[in-house]
Design a protein around this nucleic acid. Structure first.
Lengths: 349, 349
DNA sequence: CAATTTTTGAGGTACGCAACACAAATTCTG
DNA sequence: CAGAATTTGTGTTGCGTACCTCAAAAATTG
């Protein structure tokens, strides 16, 4: 039995470092917090002592002493689909956690799908905020608004939907083209060589994440599954009534319809139409976001796979990144990477 | 534009609560920390003030004042496969993070696959530890050792592999039967009705996680994919040389071999044998754990899907749970649930 | 070598809470 | 209503760090 490097049970404090370096506390403080006016030789002595004792600042004490509080705004869409509802809930939970960490989150509800409204909301944001998380739109005005916030010294992270060419410090969300490719591979493999057509239903082609997904989907479908041909993309506007009618029409018109990929919302409509047609089992349906509904359709067998992004993870990650950015701490990219989850009936959480 | 409930930027402190409740700080302290000897009426008054001000204890200040330090042991296997190596690395990283939170992790390397050795290691564990994370074995002696630790007041969480009937406070890992079912569904759907046989390679049938996975796999395969018949389980002992030979023999003997499910390690051997046979593309191979190697096989197309558990998440979760348990804080089950990840070539992180 | 600049030290306060001791006030008991 | 028990208040200390001031020491300069 090998015992790993045994750490001291008693933490080394700044005083310990001062003592072993043979300098005063003030000097250690200057070195540790990278203040001016310390001789290079002394810096080295202190750093050696830090290394020797394995000194790590006690984050609790540091936070307390600094006494900073943080205020973040989360700009989320007004009353929307299940995913957004769940995201809002997770942000609220994150806010609760953050409140114990000297951080406060205000949730601002905005029509994020209208670039002008969104940009205006960002422009008029109170300067009291040190950070903003926003479900962005890749639109010039929104981009400009983000850039202006950043120029004003406010950290901006984009959430779920990115504005890549803006100066946001981080994008918290999945790689949407990759998500589309994942859906296509699943579709192609589940259909295993059968011939036919595949429908793609997006919310709106003016949403960057939806276009990226369908782009990735088409890319793989055309290059690797030539037995399947994709029908023109349909815009369902994330509305169940609309998707119900559209899906019904699709099923009626295309006897050879083998699969449906929905890269937006409106899943209840698709499920209704599929189940009404009696072809629910034979048509492979893949969609995004695990919700109360998609979970049910998955269990029932109407839905074959869900590509998901974890709203809880995204909310927490955005808060952690804003907090780290504002207090100059590093982040661990590994922990902040939002994965493209695949859920089948069998691995539901 | 709707603004969510705006929180105060200045946190309410215990003093604020005392003032608005019209009592002293000591009384508030008694109420908040649930000490004895406070009149029910006063308790109510204080709690009302807490609610009114939205008071939340500053975790930094609380930790500092309590001044407790924690010491945890992580019992990990001696020199082992890629997954375990990666887990060890992630535990080391977690230790680094914990060091800033008044927590220390010692990594103990033990032959966790030998019940007697593992049990002895647990029995001889220093009482200096407040918590232990262990890759458990579901064996009477190990179970007894865990129970004894818990009886001694040491929190035990099982990691990756559980000992369900022990009194451990938490299991940090995936639902292995569900992981097996997930693999079977993928296998069945990728093979889409083709007839043939499927091989199952486990590390050892005395490992609970492996048996559970193959149980789940067989369950779904036999009930939902009657076109496929499973060959008797082969024990590869997580050793690449052995799995290479075994896989080679399988391929030679069974011309109708359509799929391979490996619920343990030794993937390099399987890849070698598959690629040497020239049947890598036609045989569906599904395995566990995303490593440097399985990632490569996935990209190359030899491997079709990886069922994964996130080692980083597991390490962090175990540490968080031990910390929360020892300081009496609640955990959010949501965040600690280890997901069964499915990785295809397209959604690799 | 004196004057100046740079570097270091000493010391203090504050952060918000936990934990304690002890006194004062209130309520209950016989 | 005295005495006891219960409840509440006052006050203090310490956790480890950040940040500040002012003085002392050392090194550098003319």
């Amino acid at each position: 039995m090998t015992v790993g490097a045994t750490q001291p049970v008693i933490r080394a404090t700044l005083e310990d470092v001062a003592r072993t370096a043979g300098v005063s506390l003030a000097t250690v403080d200057r070195v540790v917090n990278r203040r001016e006016g310390v001789h290079a030789k002394t810096v080295a002595r202190v750093e050696a002592a830090v290394a020797k004792l394995g000194y790590r600042a006690d984050v609790a004490a540091a936070r307390l002493a600094r006494g900073q509080t943080f205020r973040f705004a989360f700009v989320l869409p007004t009353g929307s689909n299940s995913f957004m509802t769940s995201l809002t809930e997770q942000v609220a939970r994150t806010a609760d956690w953050l409140a114990g960490q000297r951080g406060f989150i205000d949730i601002l509800h905005v029509d994020v799908f209208d670039p002008d409204v969104l940009a205006a909301a960002l422009e008029n944001l109170s300067p009291a905020y040190q950070g903003v998380a926003v479900i962005a739109l890749d639109h010039p005005r929104v981009r400009a608004a983000i850039d202006e916030l950043v120029a004003r010294g406010i950290a901006v992270v984009t959430l779920v939907s990115d504005a890549p060419s803006s100066s946001r410090v981080h994008y918290v969300g999945i790689d949407n083209p990759a998500a589309g490719r994942t859906a296509a591979t699943l579709m192609g493999r589940f259909l295993a060589g059968r011939e036919g057509t595949v429908a793609v239903i997006a919310g709106s082609l003016s949403l960057r994440d939806h276009t990226e997904r369908q782009f990735g989907f088409h890319q793989i479908l055309s290059s690797e599954h030539s037995n399947l041909s994709a029908l023109p993309v349909i815009e369902g506007r994330d509305d169940s009534d609309r998707t119900r009618k559209l899906t019904g029409a699709l099923l009626a018109r295309h006897a050879d319809l083998r699969g449906i990929y929905c890269c937006g919302a409106g899943n209840r409509g698709i499920a209704d139409a599929l189940e009404a047609s009696g072809r629910a089992r034979e048509v492979v349906w893949i969609t995004h976001e695990l919700t109360e509904y998609t979970r049910r359709f998955l269990v029932r067998g109407t839905l074959d796979a869900v590509i998901n992004q974890d709203a809880g993870h995204e909310a927490r990650s955005a808060a952690r990144i804003l907090l780290a950015h504002c207090s100059g701490e590093p982040i661990s990219p590994d922990q902040e990477r939002i994965r493209i989850d695949i859920f089948l009936r069998d691995n539901l959480p």
